[in-house]
């Protein structure tokens, strides 16, 4: 198994609250992996730490292919990682159109004074088509449903033409049809040789959706292929007593 991203002894805290403690794990390349754990387990923080959005207290993050210096690595990360933040992290009443939002995915390639041109617009349209949202290009973003908002967020990440996609709870508050559609898109990305990793909540779908799981509760509980790692013991260790009931699902996992 090739690794796309590796962390060594990663520790992150917000003030006095420890968010991640000594996490050493890896995100496998060209697979789709889930980061799973209870609320406040540091799942989003792990993504943000990888992206350099939160300061780390200690530990290292290694991205395969990135240069040695911190600056080089930062540059590489920015060009190689497509990030999809939580849908509720922005104000959907903001006065921009769907196309404007997707165009933001191209800003990373543009210098601070450059304006997106024809090429960028065409890319944004293509990305919208990929998530079947092209007819909404001119809509104000407040007029979209939750699932449509999520698809637009996905399109914005696609425009970056990255090799690694990190998604923060892409299925939160979307309907079943949209979830199916997003899963298909993500599997398509994996099959095209991209690395996909996402924060996930619904334990019932883990074995169907993911090749690899990272079980997290501030510390790393377990990490490995879904089949061997997503077991009732590990789930119980991640979620505490409550996990025992949910643990039943992992039996299906081993059968599948």
């Amino acid at each position: 198994m090739e690794t796309a991203i590796k962390t060594h002894g990663l520790t992150v805290s917000y003030g006095v609250n420890m968010a991640l403690w000594n996490v050493s794990t890896q995100i496998p390349a060209q697979q789709i992996s889930a980061i799973i754990g209870p609320n406040g387990a540091g799942k989003s923080t792990l993504l943000k730490a990888i992206l350099g959005m939160v300061p780390t207290l200690s530990g290292e993050i290694e991205v395969t292919g990135a240069g040695g210096t911190a600056a080089k690595q930062h540059q590489f990360l920015a060009s190689q990682i497509g990030y999809v933040p939580q849908r509720n992290s922005v104000d959907w009443d903001f006065p921009i159109t769907v196309l404007d939002l997707v165009l933001m995915g191209t800003y990373g390639r543009l210098k601070w004074f450059q304006r997106p041109g024809e090429k960028e617009r065409a890319d944004a349209y293509a990305a919208l088509t990929e998530v079947q949202m092209q007819e909404f290009a001119g809509r104000q973003i407040g007029q979209l449903s939750g699932g449509q908002q999520q698809r637009v967020f996905l399109a914005r990440a696609f425009v970056q033409q990255a090799s690694i996609y990190l998604l923060d709870e892409p299925f939160a508050g979307v309907d079943a049809t949209t979830e199916k559609m997003i899963v298909d898109i993500l599997h398509g990305l994996r099959d095209a040789g991209k690395t996909v990793s996402l924060v996930h909540h619904d334990l019932t779908t883990v074995s169907r959706y993911f090749d690899h799981v990272i079980l997290l509760n501030k510390q790393l509980v377990a990490s490995g292929p879904t089949r061997s790692t997503f077991t009732s013991e590990h789930i119980q260790a991640t979620y505490g007593v409550h996990g025992m009931q949910i643990g039943g699902f992992s039996e299906d996992a081993t059968d599948a």
Partner: peptide
Amino acid sequence: FVCWYRLKLLTFDPGYAAGLGL
């Protein structure tokens, strides 16, 4: 005028802007 697109992005979604390496 000059920084229009950056200011728009930073106002709408600073988290994503950080992810883009700005």
